[in-house]
Design a protein around this nucleic acid. Structure first.
Length: 280
DNA sequence: AAACAAACCTGTGCGC
DNA sequence: TGCGCACAGGTTTGTT
């Protein structure tokens, strides 16, 4: 579910609310959530310390602990991180509860119906062994920046469909199914077009679209779809879905040109939405 | 290099 | 109203 803008919104929410709060206790209610290590490793690694900062790389959320350890959370399809008052009634699928012992006690919940998500605490020295995917991540357009020349280089020799490349986390980190479609639309490029055939003008448009779409989505707190799955750490949804041009709009009039109907196709096994008139 | 399917799970929406 | 199927924001693994 959550892509770069959603994870960034969660990161900002946590940075503003749980950084500096002493962790007094940890409950783990689902072994799958801590499968990367163990419930004991998570509990022992968090209890008695404090989160000093939150970073984000692609869709990975990384917390620095005062102990020197590191916290990694990946929300995958249905994960949510919520900060609530202590003792608040817990929703179904609340798999991890981190007790924050402030003057005003609160809890940090990890809620995840599909249990694809993960929470892990580890020694940063062992990061390459415990979370090898992190080492394979490509450039994060927001955190690292991404210049037109660098983007052109990433596209060179890549014969895949552009959308498939945008979804490849080892090339560019953080873009998922919603934003890949929205970026292709804003750039005016057919998502099925081979990545190595864009030409300078399309590369320039793609560069601008990547930054414009991601920045606008972050400014809107991400996209909360019909199922209301995604929400920020404060429990409030985003509103970028109101600005979606093509995602999940098959059969509806294109919101950009108004003279064609949005089509749905499948690229690399994922739904892809585009306007055949605006995107070539 | 890259397409494809299957896997991991639960929930929801739709057609009948 | 109920049943069964398709599909869902992600990622890995194994097979062509």
């Amino acid at each position: 579910m959550p892509e770069l803008p959603e994870v960034e919104t969660v990161r900002r929410g946590l940075a503003a609310t749980v950084v500096g709060a002493p962790i007094t206790d940890v409950e783990v209610h689902h072994p799958r959530t801590v499968r990367r290590t163990s419930a004991g490793a998570l509990t022992d690694g968090l209890r008695g310390t404090t989160i000093t900062a939150f970073a984000r790389r692609g869709k990975y959320l990384l917390g620095e602990l005062a102990s020197g350890a590191r916290l990694m959370v990946h929300l995958r399809m249905s994960g949510r991180l919520l900060v609530v008052d202590a003792g608040a009634p817990r929703p179904a699928h609340t798999h991890v509860v981190v007790h924050l012992g402030d003057d005003r006690a609160r809890e940090l919940w990890f809620v995840d119906p599909r249990t694809f998500g993960e929470v892990v605490v580890y020694d940063p020295h062992d990061e390459a062994d415990i979370i090898p995917e992190l080492g394979r991540l490509g450039v994060d357009p927001v955190t690292d920046g991404l210049e037109p020349g660098e983007l052109a280089h990433l596209l060179e020799g890549r014969r895949r469909a552009l959308k498939a490349l945008l979804l490849d986390q080892a090339t560019i980190a953080g873009i998922g199914n919603i934003y890949a479609d929205e970026i292709c639309h804003v750039a005016g490029i057919d998502p099925r077009r081979r990545a190595d055939t864009l030409g300078a003008r399309r590369v320039a448009r793609l560069h601008d679209a990547i930054h414009d779409v991601l920045d606008a989505a972050i400014a809107s707190g991400g996209s909360t779809l019909r199922d209301r799955q995604y929400m920020g750490a404060d429990g409030r949804g985003g509103w970028f879905q109101l600005q979606h041009r093509v995602y999940d709009r098959a059969g509806l009039e294109c919101r950009t040109c108004g003279r064609a109907v949005v089509r749905r196709t499948v690229i690399t096994g994922r739904s892809a939405y585009f306007c055949p008139r605006c995107q070539r």
